[in-house]
Amino acid sequence: MSDGEGLAGSARPGGRTARTRDAVRRATLGELADKGFDGLTVEAVAARSGVHKTTVYRRWRNAAGLAADALDLAADEPWPVPDTGTIRGDLRAITELVRTGFADPDQGPTARALVSAAVHDPTTAAALRGFLIGRLAQAEPVVERAVERGELPVGTNPGEVLRSAVAPVYYRLFITREPVDAAHALRAADAAVSAARAGVFVIDGA
Rank of each mutant, 00 (worst) to 15 (best):
V45C: 06
T95A: 10
L66C: 05
A165D: 08
S49F: 08
V147W: 02
P168M: 10
A111H: 11
L29P: 00
P141V: 11
A185L: 08
I203G: 02
L136R: 15
V51A: 05
R187H: 10
R61P: 03
D38I: 03
E148V: 13
V142T: 15
A67S: 05
P179V: 09
A103D: 15
G4S: 03
L66H: 06
A137E: 15
R99N: 05
F174V: 11
V81H: 12
R135G: 13
V142G: 07
I203H: 12
S116A: 12
R135N: 09
R99C: 09
D190K: 03
L97H: 12
P141T: 10
E5A: 13
A125M: 11
R129V: 00
F201N: 04
W79A: 07
D190T: 07
A198H: 03
A67L: 05
V24L: 01
A182H: 12
A18H: 01
L162G: 05
R129C: 04
G89A: 06
I94P: 02
G150L: 08
L186C: 09
T156H: 02
A206S: 14
G9K: 04
V42M: 03
G134C: 13
R135F: 10
Q138D: 10
G36R: 04
A183N: 08
V202W: 06
G9C: 04
R61A: 14
G4Y: 02
S116E: 14
V143W: 03
T28D: 01
R26H: 14
P105F: 05
A127C: 02
A27V: 00
A64S: 15
A182M: 03
V200S: 12
T20P: 00
I94F: 05
A198S: 15
E43Y: 03
A165Q: 10
G4W: 03
L97D: 08
L114A: 07
D34S: 15
P78S: 05
T17C: 03
G134T: 11
A33T: 15
A18F: 00
V180I: 12
A167G: 11
A165E: 09
V45P: 00
G65W: 02
P78E: 05
D190A: 00
L7T: 05
D22K: 11
M1H: 08
L162C: 13
R12L: 12
R163T: 11
S10N: 00
Q107C: 01
R149I: 06
F37C: 02
R145W: 02
P153F: 06
E140W: 09
H120C: 07
I87A: 07
T55V: 11
R149H: 11
N62H: 06
P105R: 01
Q138K: 13
T28H: 06
